[in-house]
């Protein structure tokens, strides 16, 4: 049985994937396209480890099917956020020494970038509310908060992610 071919616009490139319809976008970008920065954590949009941007909005890739994501939208993953890991949010993350095990951090960073793109100077409560869907078992939340506050206001001069 021939499988359908889906076309995805990811990180400025056009990629195709031959997978059964209904396959989660997460498996497609990880196991088919090899973009491993986006992580699998729960598969039911509860942890946020697979957060990426679809037309600038933070989305949980695990609950998006490949066909939903191949309608011409622009997808950006952690690998597409900057060419050299020097996005202001990434730099702030290093400054705050935020990650521990690091597994959830791609998703945290993608969620934080989306926040700062729409709200460049969020309050602490706004940050907490916006980041509430991203779990971190190592308990790095306080440093994530600090990193977002460091990055807040530094976004104006950078090129943006999507």
């Amino acid at each position: 049985m021939p499988m359908p071919v889906y076309t995805l616009h990811i990180n400025g490139e056009t990629r195709t994937a031959e997978v059964p319809g209904g396959t989660s976008l997460l498996w497609v970008i990880r196991e088919h396209l090899g973009l491993m920065g986006t992580k699998y954590g729960c598969g039911i949009a509860q942890c946020g480890a697979c957060t990426l941007h679809v037309d600038g909005d933070p989305v949980r890739a695990c609950v998006l099917s490949v066909e939903q994501a191949s309608k011409g939208q622009k997808i950006v993953t952690i690998e597409g956020l900057s060419t050299d890991g020097r996005h202001p949010v990434q730099k702030a993350w290093i400054e705050a020494q935020a990650p521990q095990c690091g597994y959830c951090q791609s998703g945290q960073i993608m969620q934080a970038v989306a926040l700062l793109q729409t709200t460049p100077h969020p309050t602490r409560d706004e940050i907490k509310r916006y980041m509430n869907g991203n779990l971190c078992r190592c308990g790095t939340y306080l440093r994530i908060l600090e990193a977002i506050e460091i990055a807040s206001g530094r976004m104006d001069t950078q090129s943006g992610s999507s």
């Binding site: 920065g37 993953t77 690998e79 290093i94 020494q97 990650p99 597994y103 951090q105």
Partner: peptide, 18 residues
């Protein structure tokens, strides 16, 4: 600064699952 952190903010840190 921790040596593993830069790779954990740009998605390049490799876990076995990757």
């Amino acid at each position: 600064p921790r040596t593993d952190i830069p790779s954990k903010v740009d998605g390049s840190a490799r876990f076995a699952i990757d």
